[in-house]
Computed example of a mutant assay.
Amino acid sequence: MKSASILFNNYSVKMPTRKHRNEVALFMTKVNDLLFPDKDEEENATSPVKDKKEKWKILIVDDEADIHRITKLAFGNFEFENKSIEFLSAYSGKEAKKLMEENKGIALVLLDVVMEEEDAGLKFVKYLREEAKNGLTRIIIRTGQPGQAPEKKVIIEYDINDYKEKTELTENKFYTALVMALRSFRDLLEIEKSKADLYQLMQASDRFVPHAFINILHKENITQINLGDHVEEDTTVLFLDIRSFTRISENLTPLENFAFINSLFSYLEPAIIQQGGFIDKYIGDSVMALFFGTSDKAVSASITMLKNLKNFNQERKQAGKIPVDIGISLNSGVVALGTIGFNDRMDCTAISDVVNTAAKLEKMNKILGTQLLITEATLDRIENKKNFHFRRCPISTAAV
């Protein structure tokens, strides 16, 4: 049978086994009369505080009810960094799992080893760290039977944060362990928050500097990019322009103009991303995108955008608005991709005659009454020409 101990004022009083419950009850009555003569004070120490002040959540996992009671009495008025304690009680490993699932943000688990099973506490550690993937909550093992779980073996094989024998754990030692565990939990929370903030920052940076651009420069993240970094890649450059935008925008407020452009691009941009391209830049009502390798994906993305435009215009028609038209051009060749500007303000861009030709070619859509023009260079880089239909334009620089 197991034995427990009472911790108070630096004394460790060993409790009888569970075979002698009557003796335990009598003993506890004497301890209470001696140390806690005011019953109201005892109730205030153990009853939950009704204010909304933030608290440290500590889960006591032990099948000895006396351990729960004495722990709460001894540390009912404990505060760390202006936060008091909210104690939760579980009397088995199974109950502990349930409470962990129901209560978020538990800072510390005070864990017995031998409960419904000889290794119930150790099984709970495995569950918490490996199944629940909880690496934040601190775990202090308090055992009255160190022979069942030797300290050196447990501290190496199980992801716990401290190991205490109940018979040696004075109030002062317990206080120190408590503060260290809560401080550790607080620091881990701050690290997790910093990681989350950094992740959000990296996600936000991807919206301004495409991750594909960072990859093409052979960098892992934006912090590694320096002014002048560049590479040369065989690239298909896509230019897209909104037709008659000036006429449309004249009848819109600045806010409505932004809403219109963003709404249209939300229909068009996904086709570029789905085909492995990325937006190099937005130029007012125009878009420049880049594709690497063969030109098949750039052509597919262009055709998909024209199909999506029909859906966009259908919605505009239902709203009583005039339809919108776009022109797209593609040109392919070796392009220099890199950073320009100065140390305090850099931009990523693509520089080449390939880019200039693609921009000029897009304007030919107006003259020819077309929506999509591609150059011979792009046509030559299409691997599966049978997937598309082309016709020659009456100019020597383009094919559609």
Rank of each mutant, 00 (worst) to 15 (best):
Y175A: 03
Y175L: 05
T176P: 01
T176I: 13
A177R: 06
A177T: 03
L178N: 03
V179R: 08
A181C: 08
L182E: 07
L182C: 02
L182W: 09
S184A: 14
S184D: 15
F185L: 00
F185Y: 15
D187R: 09
D187Y: 10
D187Q: 12
L188G: 05
L188Y: 12
L189A: 04
E190P: 00
I191F: 07
I191P: 01
E192V: 00
K193Q: 14
K195C: 00
A196I: 05
A196K: 14
D197L: 11
Q200D: 07
L201W: 01
M202E: 13
A204R: 06
S205L: 10
S205Q: 11
D206W: 05
R207W: 00
F208C: 00
F208L: 08
F208R: 00
V209W: 02
V209F: 04
P210I: 03
P210Q: 08
P210N: 10
H211V: 01
H211M: 03
H211N: 12
A212T: 00
A212P: 00
A212I: 02
A212Y: 00
F213W: 06
F213S: 06
I214T: 12
I214D: 05
N215M: 11
L217V: 06
H218Q: 12
H218G: 09
H218S: 15
I222P: 00
I222G: 02
I222L: 04
I222Q: 10
T223H: 13
T223N: 13
Q224M: 13
I225H: 04
L227C: 04
G228S: 09
D229M: 07
V231I: 15
E232A: 05
E232I: 12
E233W: 08
T235F: 09
V237R: 10
V237T: 09
L238E: 04
L238R: 02
L238P: 02
L240V: 10
D241T: 03
D241C: 08
R243D: 14
S244H: 14
S244E: 15
S244G: 05
F245D: 03
F245L: 06
F245E: 04
F245N: 01
T246A: 10
R247F: 12
S249C: 07
S249G: 09
E250N: 15
E250K: 13
N251Q: 14
N251F: 06
T253P: 10
T253E: 15
P254W: 12
P254M: 05
N257P: 02
N257W: 01
N257D: 04
F258Q: 08
F258T: 13
A259K: 15
F260R: 05
F260N: 09
F260Y: 12
F260E: 12
I261W: 03
I261Y: 02
I261M: 07
I261F: 01
S263D: 15
S263E: 15
S263L: 11
S263K: 14
S263G: 13
L264A: 00
L264D: 02
F265T: 01
F265H: 04
S266D: 15
S266Y: 06
Y267S: 06
Y267A: 03
Y267R: 04
E269K: 05
E269L: 14
E269C: 09
P270K: 08
A271N: 12
A271W: 06
I272N: 05
I273F: 14
I273K: 06
Q274N: 14
Q274T: 07
Q275H: 15
G276R: 03
G276I: 01
Y282K: 09
Y282T: 07
I283R: 01
G284L: 12
D285S: 03
S286M: 11
S286K: 10
A289P: 05
